[in-house]
Design a binder for these strands. Sequence first.
RNA 1: CGGGGUGUAGCGUAGCCCGGUAUCGCGCCACAUUUGGGAUGUGGAGGUCGUAGGUUCGAAUCCUGCCACCCCGACCA
Length: 491
Amino acid sequence: MSKSLPKRSEDYSLWYNELVKRAGLAENSPVRGCMVIKPYGYAIWEKMQRVLDDMFKRTGHTNAYFPLFIPKSFFSKEASHVEGFAKECAVITHYRLKNAEDGSGVVVDPDAKLEEELIVRPTSETVIWNTYKGWVQSYRDLPLLINQWANVVRWEMRTRLFLRTAEFLWQEGHTAHATAEEAIAETEQMLDVYADFAENFMAVPVVKGIKTPNERFAGALETYCIESLMQDGKALQTGTSHFLGQNFAKAFDVKFATKEGGLEYVWGTSWGVSTRLMGALIMAHSDDEGLVLPPKLAPIQVVIIPIFFNDAQLQQISEKAKQIKKALEAKGISVKFDDRDTQKPGWKFAEYELQGVPVRIAIGARDLENGTVEVARRDTKEKAAYPLENIENKVEELLEAIQTNIYQKAFKFREENTTKVDSYDEFKQVLDTKGGFVLAHWDGTSETEERIKEETKATIRCIALDTQPEEGTCMVTGKPSARRVYFARAY
RNA sequence: CGGGGUGUAGCGUAGCCCGGUAUCGCGCCACAUUUGGGAUGUGGAGGUCGUAGGUUCGAAUCCUGCCACCCCGACCA
């Protein structure tokens, strides 16, 4: 294995793949398109889960669990939903294996064919709405605010670790409400939760917006999304929140008695983020030396590395290191003291840089004499000696500074890579030369959107919620347009 | 699923055209010297050459099927 990573500038996707593997985040599995999430990668995912789960609880949601398998018949109940997912469903047809007659191994027992085939969930709207039917009778039962953490399967043709895998982990919220207004408010609230999480924890700036009908979730009336920009200039949808209207209520006959004595269909929402967030986190900040993790999500926030020549020195250094560790932990900072004598300091430096540990403290004999430590930050690679005294305060400040800095850096990158264009030629040129988000006028038709996609590979990422109305003409057809929309080539 | 490419030790590879039992680097093990940015030397271990079949006295090498991965398209959180 070569020591350094491929360069982002030379081969971005190779850099990404190698980084994911080398930093110990994930690897490919024996099953095509699936991944093994390794301990370090899973630790980051667990931190994400914990923060998000708290946010969901604070907004009144509770967790539940619905089954992995869905009766095939459920799928045909919501027409556009079927159409959206049918092409990528794994299907269970049998429930037993037997030894092959010729001794060549096991084969599917043809006698064990399922009466009704089962679908491995690509998303859970159908089972959940089928269940909600039994839970909702009256306006008193509403709203129903439920979330589940689960795995789902979508048989994708081309997969990439974290960004698109056949099986992935996610959370899916499914809520039911008495009015459309309330459901829309829920949809928007959860979008805000996602945006808050992305920006304040992942340090990834996002554009909040709504999808065009083409890009809308199968079965939704409106799809809201957060979109972020990766370092290679491609956009990534980081989270979605859907206003389902009464589509699923009608498909699964979920009605409630109103205060006034009427009978109405309930209004639904669903919203989700997945292990794709890991991909966003990796691609938004990392560099040619490895991961750069935001302190708020880093499993190890500070690593302490002793520099020693013999056991006696290590003893002395360890004493100081353990004091520092204790002081940091008292502030809720996670610290690893790496006193292994099997690896040399330089090796450890490189390794923790690869893993994106935000702050590194090195202590050697020289520091013991001077009463200092060497503190290095991962984001800027700056190193400086600080007095040992109150080092925990310095480190705490530094962690905050790193969190802010990587957000600012990503924000600045996005600003610099968001371009307004007024002609189709300019549009193509920007896509081919600098990439990023392109703000342009569009006539609002699917035909034009399709044509642009075919000709340039760019899609409308969203119509941003904070867009100011601006009279203009569609860059392709010249028809009138009331606002600019976000285009980009996307993952 | 279409077009192209690649599968050789834990990882990365040479060898394949032109058939004769596998090269090098990293990593691993031992010892010595080393240790403030991925140490050096010496010795050592480690291989169903993706897989199944075929051709041949003999196959990593030639032929066929299958599988996996990568890149490019169609599909997508």
